[in-house]
Design a binder for these strands. Structure first.
Lengths: 189, 189, 189, 189
DNA sequence: GATGAATGAGGGTTCATTCAT
DNA sequence: TATGAATGAACCCTCATTCAT
């Protein structure tokens, strides 16, 4: 029942946005009475929260799986996995993701949400520490933050607002290049 | 009067979001009767549109001014100006900008307004063409798109969701580094 | 509940007309919340429609009953029944009837509902055909239309705008006379 | 200016009904400022009243002219003139007339204004008195009232809701017949 | 637990009317 | 006198939430 409600919520949210998402309509679409909906969810906002959490979990699983998968070696291999993980996560239910994000960002500053983005932040930090020879940064915290933001925002844009005249595969490669270039880029200071 | 209404709109929008922004409250905050509000704006959505347009114009002016200003030479100098322009634009009214972004899709055509972002895209393309010796890309369209997205999204995040433990100046430098590294990064293909 | 709402609608409609009939006031008068009103009626106009339909049904029943009742024989007897039926129908809720007539055109198709008036028209036609010896008309369609209009409009006026110095009984008799005279009146053509 | 306003009122009234007739729109259509409108008419209802009066005057003139015109002799000739006068009056601006009828009751005393209809009533009374030989009624007041109502309501219906399959000329003749039949119809009492 | 009829605060919007210019 | 910007009460309607069954 909870699941039917969440599915209906997602459907209605996508079609009409949060403001246009009526709890009565959600209940009806879920084939459930409005009373039952309120037995499982205290209010309208909690539908979004639940949807958000569910989606975050799915994304986390997908990301973990890809990050742990075998693949290219070295820093570049890690970056490739990172970007692939981000793309997979964003491609999961892109439109839902977008709506959800609108009301409550997924990737807030790492300290805010200890869950997903904290894990990723730690993963990236470890990754940078494990390749001291090629990473040209002294401030690893800053480098990790930049890496995470670049990954997230470039992938986000690439998946949700893809430029119609550019090839998806080449965009992905370009994102990997950008991150790798940033990490290994020798600078003055 | 139009201005008072728009200011009040911005204030209420920031505090309560679009759904929670009552036209009556906006009028009251503007010190204007609800009737007067509707004499200048045909409906609630038009408040957002006007706010958006005004903001876009201000941003465009700011960006143009900074891009045309004198400054460092060479590709890096250009990138610095680009990032500075983006930061200035985003710092203008960051929270308003964010809300506007959030609500826009439901009220306007999904196509990014071609004006501003088109101009910038062209500017970046020209910039890349003018530095063929250091730009390590053959597909300039892709490089320009990446440059624009990196600038926009990294600056956006840095301004609107700044990590509390990192220095703004160093973040700006890191963004410049990232873009410059991407542009000059020698790759296999 | 539907009935309480309709009764309140009728009351308010009579007092203030359609334009001055506020749905909130109707709900309040019905002892029902405005939300409940809108659970049973999709909008304000539908209140009128429902009122109209209910009234039309009641009138139809009353008319049928009287037309089928035993009574005087011959054409005159039929005309008496016809006029009595019309008077009973108009006396049912005369003021409501009047308001309903007034507002209807804006909400319904301009064609008179075929149900009631069509039935009566047919009834009259048959009636004329059954008394060929006394009916002095060759064009029965025209005669039927005139009969119906005379009945309706004379009764309407007599009931809704009765002249204060004339006796209702004698008016009814005069209406019967007029119709009977028209039907049996020998003319040149 | 007054005239421009009244013409615009009539136009808007016909198009949108009284409820949908906005004083601002009327002023605009009249090419006059809303302030000026309120300089000549104290409120919205007075527009209707003025329109009504103007229309009544025109009708009165038309009716008087036709009633005084030469024509057929005898009672039947008078009835013909009466019906012609009524038809001319109703055909003047039928739709405006209809709208005016619809809204009037809310703005005027329920007693028919003594002006026009009083005059006609007197005219009919005199007419009946002048033909004692053919008029088969002892209660002339009742006969006059019936004559007036028959004329008005039959003509009203014939002009404003003409049956599509009947000839206007024959309808007019039938109305004359009906009235004449009623007046000369010999009855028991 | 499940239901869904009932609630009513509150929302966007209109328009008759006023009054300073 | 003519103007029209300004007013704000009031309207129709929605929808998150409750609670008796």
């Amino acid at each position: 029942m909870v699941d039917a409600i969440l599915q209906a919520s997602a459907r209605v949210l996508l079609k009409h946005g949060y403001a246009g998402m009526s709890t009565n309509v959600v209940a009806q679409q879920a084939g459930v009475s409005i009373g039952s909906l309120y037995q499982y969810f205290p209010n309208k906002a909690s539908l979004l929260t639940a949807l958000h959490n569910r989606h975050a979990e799915q994304m986390a699983q997908s990301i973990e799986a890809i990050l742990a998968a075998p693949g290219g070696h070295g820093l570049r291999g890690e970056v490739v996995r990172l970007v692939r993980a981000a793309m997979a996560a964003h491609e999961m239910e892109p439109e839902l993701h977008r709506q959800l994000e609108k009301e409550r960002p997924f990737f807030e500053s790492p300290t805010d949400e200890p869950g997903l983005s904290g894990d990723i932040h730690r993963h990236i930090l470890r990754l940078l520490q494990e390749h001291p020879d090629v990473v040209a940064h002294s401030d690893l915290a800053l480098a990790a933050w930049m890496t995470m933001r670049m990954t997230e925002s470039l992938v986000h844009t690439a998946v949700l607002h893809p430029p119609h005249d550019l090839d998806a595969v080449r965009i992905e490669a370009a994102i990997v290049d950008a991150i790798h270039a940033f990490l290994t880029y020798p600078r003055a200071g």
